[in-house]
Amino acid sequence: MVVAFFCGPPVISNAGRVVTFPILTQDKLLISVFGGFFLGAGIGLAMRGGGVLDGTEILAVYASKKTSLTLSDVILLLNILIFAVAAYVLSVETALYSILAYLSAAKTIDLIIDGIEEYTGVTIVSGRSDAIRRMITEELGRGATVYSGKRGYGSRGELPQGIDIVFTVITRLELSRLTTEVEKIDRQAFLVMHSVKETRGGGVKKRPLH
């Protein structure tokens, strides 16, 4: 069934009065996208609080711990299987709109569960690696790993001398501050950034969902 948050029926409140929700749109595409957004927001907030809405989320939490799939991936796959049956019983169009709604919901779940605490791994190659390492540990309060390396070929030719390379894991919200501070120390520093899907051990702590 297509998730229709914008054109729901009247709901009876606890006081016995009828609360009427206005119909904002009849467009099925808008209903699917934004309905999926609000659905994902509800599921994501519930899971961040340690709860679930139905058996699908319970299975998703269990499967995400046993596999490399995220919670939203498992929920989306389960619902695609359900909607495949709906396409046979009801109609292909209805099933496709429903899948679109859950695609939107899956992205919203990822944003709420992982977006705020999403970690980024940053590798910094600089001749002033010790100053950068102190800035990360003392000013940002993050851990850093320093390992030895050698420069390769660049615009200045081969540089055979060794160099210390700094690696750290920070949150997405701290990334802008890190790059600004590194630029203050060494404007020629080379930075490589990549998303970190999962971390274990060390000083990086992430609150478990369940």
Rank of each mutant, 00 (worst) to 15 (best):
T56A: 08
F83Y: 13
E138C: 05
T56H: 05
L175K: 08
K66R: 03
G44M: 04
Y147T: 09
S126D: 03
E138P: 06
E93Q: 12
Y147R: 06
Y62K: 01
R177F: 10
S72C: 10
I23E: 11
R187Q: 14
G143K: 02
L59T: 14
I116D: 03
V19P: 04
R207M: 08
G203S: 13
A84C: 07
V204N: 03
I82Y: 08
L173Y: 14
A4I: 08
Y119N: 05
T123F: 11
T137H: 06
T70F: 09
A86G: 09
L111M: 07
S104N: 11
L111P: 01
V19D: 05
L30M: 14
G201I: 14
S155E: 07
T180I: 01
E139K: 15
I43W: 03
Y119E: 07
T137F: 13
R134T: 11
I43Q: 12
T168Q: 05
V146W: 00
L140R: 06
G202W: 14
I31W: 03
R187I: 11
I132V: 11
R17I: 11
L53H: 08
S64N: 02
I116M: 09
V85N: 04
G121M: 07
I109K: 04
S91V: 00
L81R: 03
T168A: 13
A189G: 11
L159V: 11
R172A: 14
L77S: 14
I113P: 01
A84Y: 12
V92R: 05
L30N: 09
A60P: 01
I23W: 04
